[in-house]
């Protein structure tokens, strides 16, 4: 069990960039993949891609992010890697529908981003859960849920 209690630096910055490059040649860099949601957590258990069990215990003034170096020595390093955020994109039929879906999603406290005329909902659970909540708006044609091919 490895206890990781601080962010030492970031993979792209020196001296970590060079050190990680050297360690990688001998396969000594391990990655902890965490979701975007979990970057707000200061405490969690996790396992690296090479099976090392870790406990993360950060002080409250630190926050995980992609490339955060949590451990490094001549014996190896542990670096945070963010998993890709999945999104549900929505298009509204008209302005009234856009207002309605915006109000509805605000009430549900979903995380969103705007991309042109599309509203993107960050998926923090199964896609079907979100589609179930939006069922009435989709069935009445007020909004359209887009697939990745759209």
């Amino acid at each position: 069990m490895q206890i990781l209690s601080s962010i030492l630096g970031y993979a792209a910055d020196e001296p970590f960039d060079s050190a990680l490059h050297d360690l990688s040649h001998s396969g000594k860099v391990e990655y902890l993949t965490i979701s975007a949601d979990d970057t707000s957590r200061r405490r969690m258990r996790a396992m690296t891609d090479k099976g090392t069990e870790c406990v993360i215990v950060l002080n409250r003034d630190q926050q995980l992010s992609d490339g955060a170096v949590l451990s490094i020595s001549d014996n190896g390093a542990i670096v945070v890697r963010l998993s890709q955020q999945k999104w549900l994109s929505l298009e509204a039929q008209n302005h009234a529908a856009a207002l309605e879906v915006g109000y509805f999603i605000g009430n549900l406290h979903w995380k969103v981003e705007f991309e042109g005329e599309r509203l993107k909902v960050a998926l923090q659970g199964p896609l079907q859960t979100y589609l179930d909540r939006l069922e009435l708006l989709i069935e009445t044609g007020k909004i359209r849920a887009l697939t990745e091919n759209d």
Binding site: S6, I7, L8, S18, L23, R42, N59, D61
Partner: peptide, 18 residues
């Protein structure tokens, strides 16, 4: 690589957080 150099890059060293 110098372990000591790397460890001194820590961004925080505040007290224990419950």
């Amino acid at each position: 690589m110098n372990d000591k150099d790397l460890r001194t890059q820590t961004t925080s060293g505040s007290q224990k957080s419950a």
